[in-house]
């Protein structure tokens, strides 16, 4: 939990002095691994799954992913289970992070 709060603080104020060495982008991305992501795509669909992998073009791989149809009035409809998916960066509209669950692994 401390990881994520720290992360949030840091996001809010980039000049945060709590951290002696500013983390580079890679380490920050690494902290998000294995956390739940909510990605909205250009066609309006929303994908919720575990963040597993990314690259410089923002292609994102989500594990145990579910698809929700256009979420105008809340995500009421049954999701469709997709499993492992790759979302091309150019189709990503927004990315949200779920900060209620700590990452599954504390390797880093």
């Amino acid at each position: 939990m401390s990881d994520t709060t720290e992360l949030k603080n840091e996001n809010d104020s980039p000049q945060n002095l709590d951290l002696q060495i500013p983390l580079d982008g890679k380490s920050k991305l690494r902290k998000w691994l294995n956390m739940n992501f909510r990605i909205e795509m250009t066609d309006g669909r929303v994908l919720i799954g575990v963040f597993l992998c990314t690259d410089r073009d923002a292609n994102v791989i989500l594990g145990a992913c579910s698809e929700y149809l256009a979420s105008g009035e809340g995500e009421t409809e049954e999701p469709r289970v997709l499993g492992l998916v790759m979302v091309p960066g150019r189709h990503i509209v927004s990315i949200q992070l779920d900060d209620t669950t700590p990452p599954q692994n504390y390797y880093y």
Partner: peptide, 16 residues
Amino acid sequence: NWVDITSDFFKHIQDL
């Protein structure tokens, strides 16, 4: 509890 990280995400990946 969704927190938007879109702009940070797209900023960080440039370090790859």
